[in-house]
Amino acid sequence: METLELKNPEFGTEAIGNKLADLVSLRKERTNPLVAAGHMDHDIGIMFMFQAKKGVLSNSGAASKLVNPFLNSYSVDISTFETLFNTFSPQGKGIKFEFIFISQQDYIKYTGSTNVSTGATEFLYFVATPLDHNDSAMGHYIIFNLGHKFEASMDFISPEERRTLHDNYLSSQFYSNMNAYRAPLMQAEGIYYTWADINKILNERNIDGRLYKEVQFFLGEVIELDIIREYFRDNPYYIFDDVAYAAAYGGNEKRLTTIGKYLPDDLVGKEVFFDMGSLYP
């Protein structure tokens, strides 16, 4: 899969996916490929999520966990990805999941969901923006935690609304604290994925060969490269291109990202995770 650099400065070049594709492979002669792949996805996904809790999210500025400025999870029905893929992939090259700050009232209005997992008045959310071949937006869509079936003609916001909500994120104390944590590097403003990557999500199957129905996203933090190296040193099931991986990984540590979990789960305790920024294998 291809890595693409965005030319439009409005959407930035942060957190672009697939820098690490094909840098890790299985030693098939040593183990069952399905078991090994499932363990790696699960293990490293858990590392990303737990590191976020003690790292990038720990200084959120909230008085307690009850009012953290982010949700417990962000879910998308795979049929929503399918609609976006069928509608926009012939016209462009990818989609940006952009970080915004949204109020409880707007969240309920846009999503139709009253199940808000934080008491914060404003919190982190995402807007999906398909981009054409010139990196220009083709619309801004509300797709996460919808309380109804996604409709492209209904679940959109205007460019002005998108800009206001994104500016809310950039001016928030939460974003300021995350920047201080990652200094001198800036935090990501979103994650970009090619349509080929979205198509892969649409066609991912569980161990029984069935397509998944939903993806549940959690906030994660890109862990230290040395932890990744140690993991592969301790697991002889993989061929790990250390030099190429380090070159692709450089500059991404301590960055906020999202970890996706396919649902329904294959095995309890061995869920299949993936990183929307493609920063773990």
Rank of each mutant, 00 (worst) to 15 (best):
T3W: 01
E5A: 09
E5M: 13
K7I: 09
K7A: 11
N8D: 11
P9C: 13
E10N: 10
E10K: 10
F11G: 09
T13Q: 12
E14H: 11
A15N: 14
K19P: 03
A21C: 07
D22H: 10
E29A: 06
R30M: 07
T31E: 06
P33W: 00
V35N: 05
V35H: 06
A36T: 02
A36I: 03
M40T: 14
H42F: 11
H42L: 05
D43P: 01
I44D: 02
G45N: 05
I46T: 08
F50Y: 14
F50R: 15
Q51N: 11
G55Q: 06
V56Y: 05
N59E: 11
A62N: 03
S64G: 00
K65F: 11
K65H: 03
L66S: 10
P69M: 11
L71E: 03
V76F: 00
I78A: 09
T80Q: 04
T80L: 09
F81V: 13
E82G: 02
T83S: 05
L84T: 05
L84I: 15
N86K: 15
K93L: 15
I95A: 02
F97K: 10
F101Q: 04
Q105Y: 02
D106K: 07
Y107N: 05
T114Y: 05
N115Q: 14
V116F: 08
T118I: 05
A120Q: 02
T121N: 14
E122L: 09
F123Y: 12
L124I: 13
P130A: 07
D132T: 06
G139R: 14
G139K: 01
H140V: 08
K149C: 01
E151A: 14
S153N: 05
S153Y: 01
E160S: 13
R163E: 15
H166R: 15
D167V: 08
N168H: 13
N168P: 04
Y169A: 07
Y169T: 09
S171P: 01
S172N: 09
S176C: 06
S176V: 08
N177P: 03
N179A: 08
P184D: 00
A188C: 12
E189W: 11
G190P: 00
G190Y: 03
G190W: 03
I191G: 00
I191R: 10
T194Q: 10
A196D: 14
D197M: 13
I198R: 12
L202D: 04
N206T: 14
I207N: 04
D208P: 02
Y212E: 11
Y212W: 15
F217A: 03
L219T: 08
E221P: 01
E224S: 15
D226Q: 14
D226T: 13
I228T: 04
I228E: 00
R229D: 09
Y231R: 10
N235P: 03
P236F: 06
D241G: 01
V243W: 08
A244D: 06
A244G: 14
A246V: 03
A246R: 01
A246M: 06
A247E: 12
A248H: 07
A248Y: 00
G250T: 06
G251M: 04
E253D: 04
E253T: 10
K254F: 08
T258H: 00
I259R: 07
P264D: 01
D266G: 07
F274H: 12
M276Q: 08
L279N: 09
Y280Q: 13
Y280P: 02
Y280T: 09
P281N: 13
P281W: 10
